[in-house]
Write a protein that binds this DNA or RNA. Structure first.
Length: 615
RNA sequence: GCCUCGGUAGCUCAGUCUGGUGGAGCGCGAGACUUGUAAUCUCGUGGUCGCGGGUUCAAUUCCCGUCCGGGGCUCCA
């Protein structure tokens, strides 16, 4: 059980007290404080607990915020801080308590409130008259954790330095000759220079129109429901990343989505994410929902016997789901969710040298996903000043692998667990980045989680761990693909890459007598691993063509009397907005060529459109 | 979380300012048509006007609260 400061708040008509006799731990007081009476007061009975000693300043701050908040709500005139040990069975040391109570008094007073504090460590008689309105009796537990950063902007003044790195040369952000508008947009965004247009990102509407995904009103904010077409695309992307990482030697695992905060390493790692966690309590456990796969991965690695011969060693998991309690105003479409799916690769490296080498390999892997998914990534590399100083040659070379300018952020001090990271972002229709792949060198977690390996000299050492998401979250990938269609709308008809298109080939019939032929053709294509369906509804050809277009179907074939006679098919090719005459085998070849070696899954919808449900 | 705008039929949206029996298109159902490349015609079905409270003879409309969504701020270890 974790204990925290407990307070009982009473809005009273009056409170009177009188000191009787000292205890061993009594504080020295002047005579005038030996008794007192306060009218219309918010009395704060307070017990300082063991846990509070870990971060007394934060407890004081949180308690002060809470008390002031209630004070203004009820409109009392005085605040009376009353030490009251009996609220807790796990008290802090008397000295810590005295300090915290004193600091609370000072901090409340600094807000120009009338504050009094009743002496600590005396036996006292007291009389309190509670007002009895709904807010007059409240209890609060104050956590020694960060709540809102609102009041203390003092920390973290040290700013990062931003530069552009191109062809091994460093440029000032204002002097760089920008040629690529997406890159310029990322720079502007990083430097807080992005102007807002007040529009909704187009992918939000498209994801619903195309029946991919929708909001689930009966869940929390930022959790989606996925319809069959969207689910198919998710699964194909998951297959894609699985193949990508396993081909490079990663071993897939699956770990729990919730963790016990009683585990010290889990708790400390969890608290790095502050309030943005889902927490849940069972009868005797406090649990958190994972925000990435680190927890499970690290626990596996900590329990695994690893030697230098095994390194680098990579384990992979697709987190369905990761949970982040983003602020309600930040959640939007597929870009920012509270429940999302992230490919998460953790690579154990013997030392910094090996981790840099692996980092380079993973840069290639992440860049490859941009090519495979046909997404343009702009890149930002972030390093601590120390790391840059010692490894400048490597940093420049790593950035050079991108083959175009990248932003280099230099952090004066290590602020997080990583010393070097690279973020790849697609730029959305409104010119804002969607953070996709990321690679990070983690120098902290191995030790915290007790992950070790045996080196050649049989010494037990903590490795370096690289976190990598080769595509970023699956939802963001889909969001980026949809944004891209909106950006390119003037250049080409919107569509998914053929391997991700739910329907790859649609066959539509002119009259009922053409259905048998259409179904036989569909069957042939299906046998060749092509997702095909048949629009057998009694609508006009014009209308069926239009429908196929609005579903972004890449290849559409009309079957009429002519097709029954010959083996030639008139194929509508969406990408080029053209019609082309070809036979069945040519079509199969063409589709397979589009799909290349990307993953395939069958169409999880009925073949005949007349039988389909409208989601 | 704060500020701001919105929530009306399965979907897209009008109506609300100025309170008085709620509209259109698409979809869906029925019928007609039997169709060759981006919406065939006619008829019909369809609503707790997000939810809760208040004001009023009367509330989708005005007021308060709340939930959900968009944008901005902030944040994205």
């Amino acid at each position: 059980m974790v204990w925290k400061m407990r307070i009982l708040l009473i809005h009273s008509d009056y409170i009177k007290y009188k000191t009787k006799s000292k205890t061993k731990i009594a504080e020295e007081i002047e005579d005038e404080k030996k008794e007192g009476e306060f009218k219309n007061s918010l009395v704060v009975f307070t017990a300082v607990e063991k846990e509070d000693e870990k971060n007394p300043d934060l407890v004081v701050e949180n308690a002060t915020l809470e008390i002031a908040d209630i004070f203004f709500k009820i409109g009392a005139e005085n605040i009376v801080i009353y030490p009251y040990a009996h609220l807790s069975s796990s008290l802090s040391s008397p000295n810590a308590a005295k300090k915290i109570l004193h600091d609370m008094e000072v901090q409340l007073r600094s807000q120009n409130l009338n504050v009094s504090r009743v002496p600590f460590g005396w036996y006292k008689s007291f009389e309190v008259s509670c007002k009895g309105h709904p807010l007059s009796e409240l209890s609060r537990t104050i956590l020694p954790e960060k709540t809102e950063p609102q009041t203390n902007e003092k920390i973290d003044i040290q700013k990062s330095e931003f530069n552009i790195l191109n062809n091994g040369k460093l440029y000032n952000v204002d002097e760089f000759p920008y040629e690529n508008s997406d890159f310029k947009k990322l720079v502007d965004y990083e430097l807080d220079r992005t102007k807002s247009s007040g529009e909704e990102p187009p992918h939000v509407k498209i994801m619903r129109e195309k029946k991919l995904a929708g909001y689930e009103p009966s869940a929390d904010i930022g959790h989606l429901r996925w319809y069959p077409k969207g689910k198919l695309i998710r699964d194909l992307l998951a297959d894609y990343v699985y193949n990508l990482v396993t081909e490079r030697g990663a071993m897939p695992v699956e770990t729990p989505i919730m963790y016990d905060l009683a585990d010290e390493a889990i708790r400390v790692h969890a608290e790095k994410f502050g309030e943005r966690q889902y927490r849940m309590e069972t009868k005797n456990k406090q649990l958190m929902l994972r925000y990435a796969c680190c927890f499970g991965a690290f626990r596996i690695l900590a329990d695994t016997f690893i030697t230098w011969k095994n390194l680098p060693l990579a384990i992979y998991e697709l987190s369905t789901y990761s949970f982040r309690l983003e602020k309600s105003g930040e959640v939007v479409g597929l870009k920012r969710l509270r429940g999302f799916t992230m490919p998460d690769l953790h690579t154990v490296c013997a030392d910094l040298q090996q981790s840099m080498q692996e980092f380079s390999n993973q840069i290639s892997m992440c860049a490859q996903t941009g090519k495979d998914l046909e997404l343009n990534y702009e890149v930002i590399m972030r390093v601590t000043a120390d790391f840059l100083e010692e490894n400048q040659e490597w940093v420049f070379q790593a950035a050079g692998m991108i083959g175009k300018p990248v932003i280099l952020e230099i952090l004066p001090k290590r602020k997080h667990y990583w010393i070097c990271k690279m973020d790849f972002a697609a730029i959305d229709y409104l010119g804002r980045p969607i953070e996709n792949p990321t690679i990070q060198i983690d120098v902290e977690s191995a030790e915290r989680f007790g992950i070790t390996y045996i080196n050649e000299d049989e010494e037990d050492l903590n490795p370096i761990i690289i976190h990598c998401s080769p595509t970023g979250s699956i939802e963001r990938v889909i969001g980026s693909l949809l944004e891209k269609t909106a950006i390119k709308i003037d250049e080409k008809p919107p569509m998914f890459p053929v391997w991700l298109s739910p329907t790859q080939v649609r066959i539509l019939t002119i009259a009922e007598r053409h259905l048998d032929f259409a179904l036989r053709l569909a069957d042939d294509l299906k046998k060749q691993n092509i997702r095909v369906d048949v629009d057998d509804r009694p609508d006009t050809v014009r209308k069926k063509i239009r429908n196929a277009g609005s579903e972004w179907v890449p290849y559409v074939i009309v079957i009429g009397d002519k097709e029954l006679e010959s083996d030639q098919l008139m194929v509508n090719i969406r990408e080029f907005n053209e019609k082309s005459l070809m036979n069945k085998n040519k079509l199969i070849e063409r589709v397979n060529n589009d799909i290349d070696n990307m993953p395939f899954r069958k169409l999880p919808l009925s073949l005949k459109l007349s039988e389909r449900v409208n989601f």
